[in-house]
Design a protein around this nucleic acid. Structure first.
Length: 267
DNA sequence: TAGGCCATCTGGTCCT
DNA sequence: AGGACCAGATGGCCTA
């Protein structure tokens, strides 16, 4: 099936489709004619799935329903619904991107769907562990008075200003996330990651274990195909708290948003 | 040019 | 019956 509509908006996850009040308004004449021609000639170029519970009679019923004069309207209606459903899904995906610790801007390429989902998962895991740690600390504070100095040492660590949408406590535990982002490689994500990474890197008392691939939520073997390093900024260096890091991402980075954007991928 | 990502169409299945 | 959800297929755009 021709997807001429896709060429109008294929690069946006929330395409600005000019969908008229009627479904037919969405189709160009050429597309509609093509559609009708295919319908008329009985399109069946692709293999069908097993019909399962739908018997042959039901199949014929469905087919005739879609091929008849009302069938075209029905088909358009179904397509429109599906389109709307996918647009809603993409809006939700955009909403998710907005709350991710990821440099955003008009000149920054946005995260792919798969990257967004994986990063979101890691982010949630990181926040959960951060919350657990905070609970532990609170327990220590109220459990015994002798640990206040210890707690104070741990809380007062050099941090960067948290991202606008992040709770103030988050930077304490951002190293794992930064490392995840680092592993995502390059682009603005890595810029943010680097900033966060440095925030915790410089602490000799960082209570973190060495980088754990578990934060990524997937096996490293799948990374190359899923998350490439567009700018080749990230390298294979492993990061450990308190250890100097030679990778390009860990060189002094500008912290202003404008600077981040200037270094991020151009569209 | 190959590969990644995406939007769209489409038919099947499940749910209300 | 109608709608939502899902997955396969297809083709376009972009980048390395």
């Amino acid at each position: 099936m021709e997807s001429d509509t896709g060429s109008n908006s294929s690069r946006s996850s929330s395409p600005e489709l000019v969908v008229g009040s009627s479904v037919g308004g969405f189709f160009s004449n050429q597309m509609f004619q093509e559609y009708c021609r295919k319908e008329g000639s009985g399109r069946d170029s692709k293999p069908r799935k097993a019909l399962g519970a739908v018997d042959a009679g039901a199949k014929d019923h469905i087919q005739s329903e879609l091929i008849g004069p009302d069938g075209q309207d029905l088909r358009l209606k179904v397509n429109s619904r599906e389109r709307k459903r996918m647009h809603d899904l993409n809006e939700a995906m955009d909403g998710l991107r907005e709350v991710m610790p990821y440099a955003q801007g008009p000149s920054v390429r946005k995260l792919s769907k798969i990257s967004t989902l994986m990063l979101a998962r890691n982010y949630i895991l990181m926040l959960s562990s951060s919350l657990d740690e905070m609970k532990k600390l609170v327990g220590e504070v109220y459990g015994s008075g002798g640990v206040q100095g210890h707690v104070a040492r741990r809380v007062v660590q050099p941090t960067v200003a948290p991202l606008p949408h992040l709770p103030a406590a988050v930077p304490l535990q951002l190293l794992p996330l930064a490392q995840s982002l680092h592993s995502l490689g390059g682009s603005a994500a890595a810029m943010t990651a680097s900033t966060l990474h440095h925030a915790t890197h410089s602490s000799a008392h960082a209570p973190h274990s060495p980088p754990s691939a578990g934060y990524l939520g997937y096996h490293a073997s799948s990374l190359p195909s899923l998350l490439k390093d567009p700018l080749h900024l990230a390298s294979s260096y492993r990061h450990f708290p308190g250890m100097p890091c030679p990778c390009s991402l860990c060189q002094p980075m500008p912290v202003s948003t404008a600077s981040l954007h200037s270094l991020a991928i151009r569209k």
